[in-house]
Amino acid sequence: MTESQHDSQPIVRMQKLNKHFGSLHVLKNIDLEVKPGEVVVVIGASGSGKSTLIRCINGLEEFQDGHIVVDGHNLVPHGKGAKALQRIRTEVGMVFQQFNLFPHLSVRDNVTLAPLKVRGVSAAQANESAERLLDRVGIRDQADKYPSQLSGGQQQRVALARALAMEPRLMLFDEPTSALDPEMIGEVLDAMRELAREGMTMIIVTHEMGFAREVADRVIYIHQGEIAEEAAPERIFDEPQDERTRNFLARVLKH
């Protein structure tokens, strides 16, 4: 990460974001900026609102108050502004905990679907970039298989390639390794590490603290819907300032 990248306009800016699920106040006055090229890792207990937070960025969750600007497009409360939302989604990729690959399509078709239908690229072009991306995540030889024929780690790497095929400016990761068997976590983290090294802007929700420390430019600790602490990884992990952060880290790092 170079300093000049960090100085440029933020790609995500959240201001006073509030979200409720019924009577539950899930996100409380969240202010957050992410600059191009930054890798931000969001940590917190389950139910703290960290997944909800990143799902607001591409409009999978509506919010009730505040606003979000993503790459110059405005997201407003209550899911209004469908045009901006669609534009944001073509620029923002997402990888899900449960992979969410399309089971009725081959690996190749999973990757080419959005470029063909949304970007309108030619079949040859879509195919070529699919092969390049699958090669990059190490599963080029599986292109004609179906998702159910792959291991969890391979599926998640296909999901990554599928998101990258849209050439996103920002990638969101929602607990990408939480559904994986332990021996497959490494291969997915490696692919993400590689992506970070290439300069992709990433917001990652994860429980992998070692990975967070290694790749994050900034770590955000969310506690009951609030940003409790936000700092460089060394600072968060080695000298957390907030009592709540200390308690959380004591619990997750102890085993």
Partner: peptide, 15 residues
């Protein structure tokens, strides 16, 4: 069909 299928589609920019 699992909700994730729709979410993945929308997140890719499909209408």
């Amino acid at each position: 069909i699992e909700r994730g299928q729709r979410e993945a589609s929308l997140s890719l920019g499909l209408s």
